[in-house]
Design a protein around this nucleic acid. Structure first.
Lengths: 139, 139
DNA sequence: TGCCGATATTTAGCACGCTAACTACAAGGA
DNA sequence: TCCTTGTAGTTAGCGTGCTAAATATCGGCA
């Protein structure tokens, strides 16, 4: 039997690389009670408050059902505040809570360190190439 | 607001590349009633029958709980057969069902085509580099 | 023999991520 | 005004993937 029979399958390689990266984020953020996805949503909200659920979903490429659940749990945990927009009650407006605002800087630092940790096996040019390839896969 | 604020976050890039690849597999395999993961498990079983759940999990880097559930659904759907090993009843032995054996060749072809489709935006050297980088991330 | 610790699998519970169905609201025309 | 159509968000149901706890079996040792 081949030892690593799946190294030619790009789906497998992507899945495992994502799993590993996700694990590193998870470890780093669990002391805050945040999941990896939630950490991304938090920084997105901090970059522009008042976005709707749909706009956040587009930004982070999450479908409506997924972003809806994530926002719900984050509001529940006190990271963000969900308001319905006055002009059009179909829309939400998502804001940081005081807790969210206070910890955003730290979360962003953790995220950057996690990214650094994940990429530590690659040289700078390799990191740039990898990112370009991953973007090119998204066509 | 930046248009694509997360292209610097390797977790985000990996997640989205994986999502897209997974989507292509999903589309291609749903006519068989197979999920992307199940397609990988099926080809793994076809390469060596009689492996235990744990051995398959190690091969595919899936934890016990996950492989257990996947195997259950695949047995339910009639792709594989679960037997308990006679020598040590703690172990399972996983075999292909007649249906699994019949369709494995086709499934492998679909998998190869899906991989080709996913990588189609990259030249050959780029594909090899990408695979190497993804493996290197798994340290 | 009978118990103890190790090992393989299963189960429960949570968080995505997807599709599909549903609700709520808005806008525009008959 | 009423109705139809479209849009934003929620909910339900499924399949991973994880951790932790439970179950079943084995092996060895008193």
């Amino acid at each position: 039997m081949a030892k690593k029979p799946y190294e030619d399958c790009i789906l497998f390689l992507l899945a495992k690389a994502f799993q590993r990266a996700s694990g590193k984020f998870k470890k780093r953020f669990q002391k805050y009670g945040l999941t990896p996805v939630q950490s991304l949503v938090l920084t997105a909200v901090s970059e522009e408050e008042g976005l709707s659920a749909g706009e956040l979903g587009k930004l982070l490429v999450l479908d409506q059902a997924t972003i809806s659940g994530v926002l719900d749990r984050m509001a529940e945990a006190g990271w963000i505040v969900k308001e319905t927009a006055a002009e059009d009650k179909r829309f939400l407006r998502i804001y940081l809570s005081p807790k969210g605002r206070e910890l955003t800087g730290e979360i962003i630092r953790e995220r950057d360190e996690a990214n650094e940790e994940i990429m530590s096996g690659l040289r700078l040019e390799e990191r740039l190439l990898l990112k370009r390839f991953l973007v090119d896969l998204q066509r």
